[in-house]
C-alpha cells in the first residue's frame, strides 16, 4: 500500500496554499493514501514507447489573422477606455 506520510500532506498543503487543521491533515492523509495507492496501478504498464497526450484536438498554433485594427479613440494624447472602477463605495 502506497501511503502518504503526514509530512507529505503538509508539504503538498503548503504548495497549494491550503491551511489545514490537525484533524484535516490526519483525515486527508488516510483518504489520499487510499487514492494514491489505487492510482499507482499505472506503474505496471510499459509506457516507454508512448508520447504523452496533453489535449485531444490535434490543433497547434491557433492564431487569429495579424491584422491592424483601429485603436481606441484618443483625447489630449491619451487613449479613452471604459471605466473599471465605476462604483463609489
Amino acid at each position: 500500500m502506497r501511503s502518504l506520510t503526514r509530512d507529505d500532506v503538509l508539504h503538498v498543503a503548503k504548495l497549494a496554499k491550503l491551511d489545514l487543521t490537525n484533524e484535516e491533515v490526519a483525515r486527508f492523509q488516510r483518504q489520499l493514501s487510499k487514492i494514491v495507492d489505487y492510482i499507482s496501478q499505472l506503474s505496471e504498464i510499459d509506457t516507454s514507447s508512448l508520447e504523452p497526450t496533453s489535449q485531444t484536438t490535434g490543433l497547434e498554433n491557433v492564431f487569429r489573422k495579424d491584422e491592424v485594427k483601429p485603436s481606441s479613440y484618443t483625447r489630449n494624447g491619451y487613449f479613452v477606455v471604459n471605466a473599471i472602477l465605476d462604483k463609489k463605495s
Binding site: 502518504l4 507529505d8 500532506v9 508539504h11 503538498v12 498543503a13 504548495l15 497549494a16 491550503l18 486527508f28 489520499l32 487514492i35 494514491v36 492510482i39 499505472l42 506503474s43 504498464i45 509506457t47 508512448l50 508520447e51 504523452p52 497526450t53 496533453s54
Partner: peptide
C-alpha cells in the same frame, strides 16, 4: 492536494507524465 502531489518534484514523471502516456 492530490493534483499538487502528482505534479510535484519527484512524483511528476511517475504519476502525471505517465498518466498522459497511458
Amino acid at each position: 492536494m492530490l493534483g499538487s502531489y502528482v505534479l510535484s518534484s519527484g512524483y511528476y514523471n511517475e504519476y502525471y507524465l505517465n498518466a498522459m502516456k497511458v
